[in-house]
């Protein structure tokens, strides 16, 4: 159960990133490494991720929690309870 959920949340985040960084190849993302460096994302992109989470899934991420979106792994850990 937990793994399926984890996978779904990972996919949700990946789908959002794919819609923002249209030219970025996402096939080789390492879940443990910072998204910022791997995908050359900047603060404007993270803001878009947060706004998309709200728009698509009504999930809110307060600013203080932005650092928890650093890697895909931490995204999944942080966001999964919010999708429960």
């Amino acid at each position: 159960m937990e793994t399926t959920q984890g996978l779904d949340v990972r996919q949700i985040v990946m789908d959002i990133i794919a819609d923002i960084a249209l030219d970025q190849d996402l096939s080789a993302v390492d879940d443990n490494k910072p998204l910022r460096e791997q995908l050359e994302l900047d603060s404007m992109d993270f803001l878009d991720i947060v706004m998309e989470l709200k728009k698509r899934h009504q999930v809110e991420v307060p600013q203080a929690d932005f650092p928890r979106l650093a890697t895909l792994k931490s995204c999944v850990e942080y966001l999964t309870p919010k999708f429960a």
Binding site: L47, V50, M51, K54, E60, Q63
Partner: peptide, 16 residues
């Protein structure tokens, strides 16, 4: 748009 229309919705301040 980000600064005055959207960021308030997420309670964030950011640089352009």
């Amino acid at each position: 748009a980000n600064k005055y229309g959207l960021i308030n919705d997420t309670n964030t301040e950011t640089r352009i």
